[in-house]
């Protein structure tokens, strides 16, 4: 479980996040949504400690994350996996070496065990047999999936995904969403996903947080979205006129509400 309270972050004089407080439960896919520039990436980076907030507290279970000792931080981080918005694969290493890197660094596994683990993870993201390829030889979606494989190779307790399906077709997006959801349940991970993909929200949104102008303006699950009358949420979810019409039709036919 991750609990944050009173998070405030500004760059210079521009506040990006103002007074964010919430909780992320394990075994659940927690989604952070909001339009481009709303501060999703900043919030995620705050949560993993890549940037520090101006004010506020972050707790990983009982651990005070912002006042943790360096050594404990590294131990905690071995339990954290992260998928970056741009994948951040090491481009001079092969796919296999990328996924194996955390194993090489932190485990005493034999070569055979490592290679078995790498193959399991690759299989988990449906990319069997691309071990010897370099990241530059992969499509964007494949890079994302390799990024996921690398993030889960150490069986993390916390998984952070920044836009796991931006730039992917709806079908592949769905596969990745399902994948993240399954892994989350299998390992009882606390998973936090940044997204502005409405399909993801409606498929795996067990706890959805809408960021708007630096604040949490709505929180709930995917079923509550339809019945909510939060204007900002609706503007965001049903952004296109097409979806707008679809929703109106649904409501006039007595769907929800």
């Amino acid at each position: 479980m991750i609990k944050i309270s009173g998070i405030y972050k500004s760059f210079g004089n521009t506040p990006v996040l103002k007074n964010i407080s919430t909780e992320f439960q394990p075994g659940k896919t927690n989604l952070i949504i909001g339009k481009s520039g709303a501060g999703k990436t900043v919030l995620l980076k705050l949560l993993v400690g890549l940037i520090a907030p101006n004010e506020g507290q972050i707790f990983y279970n009982q651990i005070d994350f912002l006042h943790i000792k360096k050594k404990d931080l590294r131990t905690l981080r071995m339990k954290v996996g992260m998928l970056f918005q741009g994948s951040a694969l090491f481009d001079s290493l092969t796919v296999e070496e990328n996924i194996r890197f955390p194993l090489d660094m932190f485990t005493e596994m034999t070569k055979k065990e490592k290679s078995a683990r790498v193959n399991t993870c690759l299989n988990r993201v449906s990319l069997d047999g691309i071990n010897a390829k370099f990241p530059s030889e992969l499509s964007g979606g494949m890079q994302k999936r390799v990024g996921i494989a690398r993030a889960i190779v150490l069986n993390p307790s916390y998984l952070f995904c920044d836009e796991p399906n931006s730039g992917l077709d709806p079908k592949t997006s769905l596969v990745i969403d399902e994948l993240i959801k399954d892994i989350t349940i299998e390992n009882n991970m606390t998973t936090i996903i940044n997204t502005h993909d409405m399909n993801s929200v409606m498929e795996i949104g067990e706890n959805v947080i809408l960021l708007h102008e630096g604040e949490i303006c709505w929180q709930g699950n995917k079923d509550e979205i339809m019945s909510s009358d939060n204007e900002i949420l609706h503007d965001f979810i049903f952004a296109s006129p097409f979806l707008q019409r679809l929703r109106n039709a649904a409501i006039s036919n007595g769907f929800h509400k």
Binding site: V48, R74, R77, V80, A88, M105
Partner: peptide
């Protein structure tokens, strides 16, 4: 710049 250092930090690498 390519966030490789951030990625390593998050793995727990010094």
């Amino acid at each position: 710049q390519k966030e490789h250092i951030d990625a390593m930090e998050i793995m727990g690498v010094n």
